[in-house]
């Protein structure tokens, strides 16, 4: 296994592991803010997977100047650029709704929130 292959697949394994850990946290944690944190982790992992899908080793960043001949795919990066900013706005909404729900039920525990039960 060459260094290039290890570089490429270690990035993919990190991103997939982050998504898996985030989904596990969303499913099993009990505090509403902890669930929001796990959601943010899964969001970061999905962004990593999207950028990885356009990544080719041994190429340069997609900013053309005289020293660059081959670049990576710019299209997934452009998608992720907006996805990050929208992700933080959605996290803000998540936190506000979570705070309101915890005020209504008197606790941050999702087991006591009838609306959020599963």
């Amino acid at each position: 296994m060459t260094a290039e292959t290890m570089f490429y697949w270690s990035l993919a394994a990190t991103a997939l592991g982050l998504v898996v850990i985030g989904i596990w946290g969303v499913l099993t944690r009990k505090n509403i803010l902890r669930i929001a944190l796990a959601f943010t982790l899964a969001d970061t992992g999905v962004n990593l997977i999207l950028v990885w899908s356009g990544f080719l080793p041994n190429r340069a960043a997609p900013i053309i100047d005289s020293s660059v001949t081959t670049v990576v795919d710019p299209l997934p990066q452009a998608l992720v650029l907006t996805s990050i900013v929208i992700g933080v706005a959605v996290a803000a909404l998540f936190v506000v709704v979570g705070v309101l729900a915890s005020r209504k039920s008197g606790s941050a525990d999702v087991r006591r929130m009838k609306e959020l039960r599963w």
């Binding site: 997609p62 900013i63 053309i64 670049v71 710019p74 299209l75 990066q77 452009a78």
Partner: peptide
Amino acid sequence: VNLVTAVV
């Protein structure tokens, strides 16, 4: 020059 900005 920046292709990502061009796409966005």
